[in-house]
């Protein structure tokens, strides 16, 4: 029905009216999109420009080739592929851990009425105002101390980094997930309880599956967030080339060396960006609903 109506209306629009109400909207869209995509284009073009020289680069290279990619993969001082692997592993493990810790705590905060519940919620909220990155100095000193006794919690170890991030998980995700759980009618759990389900069965078999779309968004956003984290990662992983993530490694690779490393750098940036952008496009709908969830609730 509705579609038919829209079709009828669209037919009515004359060219003159289109020019007046629509053309400038397209123009605005074109200009903004050009601005939005330019860095991506420029990066892609540089990566295929075999000269790899920033000063002579054109938007469309004269003789496109893969030389930059070869240089990138074969630089023993800057192990791009190892950084890439580190990033994927650290971000992947961390995204799942963060989601799980947040999802679990949020279940208790949403479904159980226990002593100290309000205090916990308020505390989490206040703690969130002190992001871990402001405490980078003390996290550094703390790991220096712990690492003397426990090797996997030492500076330079990626497990230490993952555990530090896991410590921040509750603060980041618990509130958002609690809000979502609150929208799941509690009659569902109660009827399951009558059927003899234990609390863990309700959680794992009913609540978690229902929350799947939100959990997917949290995993995606934590994944991207960890890939992009620079400050804590560089403080904790330090200067060991083989344990760095892409974010820190690429920064060290290009810092002050735009002239020499521009071509291979853009090749690396392209490889790392494209999958993330595509993934984001696919999950766009969910991400957008996650972003606006906070605003429509208040």
């Amino acid at each position: 029905m509705t579609r038919k109506v829209v079709l009828v209306q669209q037919k009515k629009m004359t060219f003159g009216k289109w020019l007046k109400t629509m053309s400038w909207r397209h123009l605005v869209a074109f200009i903004t999109i050009a601005f939005a995509l330019f860095p991506l284009f420029w990066m892609a073009s540089a990566s295929f420009d075999p000269l790899g020289i920033v000063s002579s680069q054109k938007l469309i290279p004269d003789h496109p080739g893969l030389d930059n990619f070869r240089t990138l993969f074969n630089d023993p001082d800057h192990p791009y592929l190892i950084w890439f692997r580190n990033s994927i592993v650290i971000s992947g493990v961390n995204a799942i851990l963060q989601m799980f810790i947040g999802a679990t705590a949020a279940y208790a905060l949403s479904r159980f009425r226990f002593k100290g519940r309000k205090t916990t919620l308020m505390t989490i909220l206040i703690i969130q105002m002190f992001p871990q990155l402001l405490a980078a100095t003390s996290i550094f000193l703390m790991l220096a101390e712990l690492g003397k006794s426990i090797p996997f919690l030492a500076l330079g170890n990626s497990i230490a980094l993952i555990i530090v991030f896991a410590g921040g998980a509750l603060g980041i995700n618990a509130w958002m997930l609690k809000g979502f759980y609150d929208t799941i009618p509690s009659e569902i759990d109660e009827s399951a309880k009558i059927d003899g389900a234990s609390h863990s069965q309700i959680y794992f078999r009913i609540i978690l599956p229902l929350a799947r779309p939100v959990l997917a968004v949290i995993v995606l956003l934590s994944f991207i967030g960890t890939m992009n984290e620079f400050l804590l990662t560089s403080v904790i992983l330090g200067g060991k080339q083989n344990s760095l993530t892409l974010a820190v490694g690429m920064q060290q690779y290009i810092d002050g060396q735009y002239k020499q490393h521009w071509g291979p750098f853009t090749a690396g940036a392209l490889i790392a960006s494209v999958p993330v952008v595509i993934l984001f496009m696919f999950l766009q709908k969910y991400v957008v609903s996650g972003l606006t969830a906070g605003s429509t609730k208040g």
Partner: peptide
């Protein structure tokens, strides 16, 4: 409730609250 919330809180205290206070 503790089963769901204690592990996260322990990590939170150690890696977010303690560093904040230590700072």
């Amino acid at each position: 409730a503790g089963k769901y919330i204690v592990p996260g809180v322990i990590l939170l205290l150690l890696f977010q609250v303690y560093p904040a206070l230590f700072t």
